[in-house]
Design a protein around this nucleic acid. Structure first.
Length: 448
RNA sequence: GUGCCUUUAGCUCAAUGGUGGAGCGCCUGACUGUGGCUCAGGAGGUUGUGGGUUCGACCCCCAUAAGGCACCCCA
């Protein structure tokens, strides 16, 4: 039999237990925090019908479809199913399908793997976790939601302890109103938004050229736009808000509405206790995606801007227009957890620890006393302390070596001497300190 | 889908066209009641794959695959 050489599949990350433990802890933090704000869990299938996934103009080249490996000649290997490439489209389908059973505003979270048929590169995977929250309304969604969502994200990343991050917030209506005020035709506003979104990445000159040469914006208007959204003139949130307030574009209705929304959202975020250095009104955030209509978010790590946006989202007027005629607006945001956690582990920001979730190992020096060892483990587990028993043959030295490599914190040691005295030895594997204790007192010693 | 780069031990990397090495890791022992440290020893390779040039190829050429990075797009 020939051996198949195992090798990793590019873009499909796979972790060793020490890193997986860290990853799962992050997933847990996200889940707990989402629930702390009252978001309810749902999970949709990994697959949707192709027609659902392509409805919103999903790039078909990036969608993995399902086929069967073998079919009879009279069957087609093709199926009408494909793997979901985000969680928003499945949400739209889910809400449209269940709208008469759901209670609105519908607040849900969803943490699932998604798949994209892209060429992988740094931080770009073909299989990764997204952790989404969205609030979907029937007809309308309160603007307080727009403020609440960044505060959820703040709590998540704060608890994850990933260092200083900034949630950048803008309002697309405001930008659209500004462009309108400058006389940019409606048909070009989408293009202008996309161009403006690349300001940080491509620089002022390139964006200016794109605006004037490619899109056809007047030179003076392009300069106006760059001056307005550029960060140079207003670096903190209050300065940005003041700049907006003082702008002659306030005469434009859309601009004024966007400004009012942004003011309300910023005030709400502050009331929710997010410190000023963790969020920022930032006029250069536009989001390329067409369906955002109001508030938009992007989040970056201060020390690791190269990771890109680790969390982004915004408000959309109509979630499920492809699946129902009912208008279902919403606000949502998505954390790209795989990108975030895996890269932060590589960068050493998130430290990996043990390769076992159990802090305690019961060594088995005297195999004739296995019954006693098993009872010790059972009593610890009864108290909620994760415990492993060493089953293989091995000297105590081997057993401790094993315990050390896996990162156990405490080893229980008992042999002839200890059993004779009704005692067990508790060894702290970090300090090396050993204490003898009565068997009945074991739990107290381990906990302490 | 486009472009550039890379591919040698499990990992990170050496090796003028002339017998493929090191560090780390792994295994064994020193050590049958004590891990990490140390010391000694050991295993591990059709040099990604296929072809070509050459007396001779890890090295040069062609093809191909995989990986990495950037673009596009996005988490």
């Amino acid at each position: 039999m020939s051996i198949i050489t195992p090798k990793p599949i590019s873009g499909f990350p796979e972790l060793l237990p020490d890193a997986q433990i860290v990853f799962n802890r992050c997933l847990q933090i996200v889940r707990e925090t989402y629930e702390l704000f009252g978001f309810a869990p749902i999970e949709t299938p990994a697959v949707e019908r192709k027609e659902i996934l392509t409805s919103k103009g999903g790039d078909e080249k990036e969608i993995f479809a399902l086929t069967r490996l073998f079919t009879r000649p009279d069957e087609s290997p093709e199926t009408d199913l494909a793997l979901h490439f985000d969680l928003t489209v499945p949400l739209a389908r889910y809400v449209a399908q269940n709208k008469d059973k759901l209670v609105f505003p519908f607040r849900r979270y969803q943490m699932q793997k998604i798949w994209r048929g892209e060429r992988p590169q740094k931080g770009r995977y073909r299989e990764f976790y997204q952790c989404d929250i969205d609030v979907i309304g029937r007809g309308s969604v309160s603007l307080f939601t727009d403020a609440e969502i960044p505060s959820v994200i703040y709590q998540v990343f704060k608890r994850m302890d990933i260092g200083h991050f900034v949630i950048r917030i803008n309002n697309r209506r405001l930008l659209q109103g500004y462009f309108e005020y400058l006389g940019v035709p409606n048909a070009q506003i989408g293009e202008v938004l996309r161009a403006v979104d690349r300001l940080e990445k491509e620089g002022r000159d390139k964006v200016r050229r794109e605006l004037t040469e490619k899109i056809g914006v007047a030179e003076s208007a392009a300069d106006d736009i760059l001056a307005f959204i550029g960060n140079e003139s207003a670096s903190d949130t209050d300065a940005v808000l003041a700049k907006i307030q003082a702008s002659p574009a306030m005469s434009n209705e859309r601009f004024a509405q966007g400004a009012a929304e942004l003011n309300t959202v910023i005030a709400g975020i502050r009331s929710l206790g997010v410190p000023d250095d963790y969020f920022r009104a930032d006029l250069s955030i536009a989001r390329g995606l067409g369906y955002y209509t109001g508030t938009v978010y992007e989040t970056q790590l201060i020390k690791y801007p190269e990771l890109g946006s680790i969390c982004s989202g915004g408000r959309y007027d109509d979630l499920a227009s492809y699946f129902t005629t009912e208008k279902l607006p919403g606000v949502g945001i998505s954390i790209g957890l795989s990108r975030l956690v895996i890269q932060l582990i590589e960068a050493g920001v998130l430290k990996t620890g043990p390769s076992t979730p159990a802090p305690v190992i019961v060594t088995t020096m005297d195999t004739s006393r296995m019954a006693d060892y098993l009872k010790i483990a059972a009593s610890l587990r009864e108290a909620g302390i994760a415990t492993e028993v060493y089953f293989d043959k091995g000297r105590l030295g081997d057993q401790l070596k094993y315990a050390n490599r896996k990162g156990f914190k405490i080893a229980i040691i008992a042999g002839e001497n200890e059993f004779a005295a009704g005692q067990v030895k508790v060894k702290n594997l970090i300090t090396g300190q050993e204490t003898l204790c009565e068997q009945a007192q074991l739990l107290a010693h381990v906990v302490g």
